[in-house]
Design a protein around this nucleic acid. Structure first.
Length: 231
DNA sequence: CGGATTTGACCCGCGC
DNA sequence: GCGCGGGTCAAATCCG
């Protein structure tokens, strides 16, 4: 799966399921001491290291990573009440791919969400399958609405060249299953290519994937206001 | 001048 | 116990 960003040139996003995210990025050694935070990684085909995602981030560190010529940057949400962090690094296999790992849940909405389609589209790219529903909801009150085919981005799909680019399937969560079952993924006329829709909604094939937590819903809550969400 | 970024030091867990 | 590597802190610096 890949999702093009509205307003971002040559950007392509691939969601990495949590289990893969843990291996694609550093294993949280110190996370055993700290509260274990839900974590999600995204692979983004972009020239830009730090992609705008609707939130404001403060960079608090940068480290060289072993086995990678590119440094890893550490960002924290500028909202003092928000403990969300993200790591940004370039794939050593494919320098054009930026791996962004989010950790935690925002306790506030995006700074730019209500400014227009751009923020929503950005939010949508973060949430993959949720993007479809979001796009549909947005279309109800935003003109022009984001096009689902733009969100899926198939015409600009870049097959992940990195081995860390795993199946790009979404994790199993209640909210996502709801989305999967929603007409958003089934409406005729939308891009229902098996390659796109199915992989987005696919249950992770491996039973080793940790049981879904409310994390996804939490992130969804962050970006998609309750009044906008499906169901 | 305030906020963001940079960067070296430090802390901590893990593996040997 | 020690070294390594990831993650964080905080002072210095930059920038609007």
């Amino acid at each position: 799966m890949a999702v093009s960003l509205i307003g971002f040139d040559s950007a392509c996003v691939c969601l990495i399921r949590p289990a893969a995210a843990a291996t694609a990025t550093a294993t949280a050694k110190k996370g055993q001491k700290r509260a274990r935070q839900p974590r999600f990684a995204f692979m983004t085909k972009s020239e830009i290291d730090h992609l705008e995602d609707g939130y404001r981030w403060r960079k608090y560190g940068q480290k060289a990573v072993k086995n990678s010529p590119f440094p890893r940057s550490y960002y924290r949400c500028t909202n003092s009440k928000c403990t969300v962090k993200k790591r940004v690094e370039r794939s050593s296999d494919d320098p054009s791919v930026v791996i962004t790992t989010y950790e935690g849940q925002h306790c506030h909405h995006t700074a730019s969400f209500q400014r227009g389609v751009g923020g929503a589209a950005v939010a949508a790219h973060i949430h993959g399958a949720a993007a479809v529903a979001l796009a549909e909801q947005m279309s109800a009150f935003v003109s022009p609405p984001p096009q689902p085919h733009m969100l899926y981005g198939l015409p600009r799909l870049h097959p992940p060249s990195s081995e860390t680019a795993v199946s790009c399937s979404m994790p199993t969560t209640t909210s996502l299953q709801e989305l999967n079952n929603s007409e958003g993924l089934q409406r005729p006329g939308y891009n229902n290519s098996p390659q796109a829709a199915v992989t987005i909604a696919q249950r992770p094939p491996s039973p080793s994937v940790p049981p879904a937590v409310s994390f996804d819903k939490g992130l969804l809550d962050d970006i998609v206001p309750p009044g906008v969400r499906l169901g």
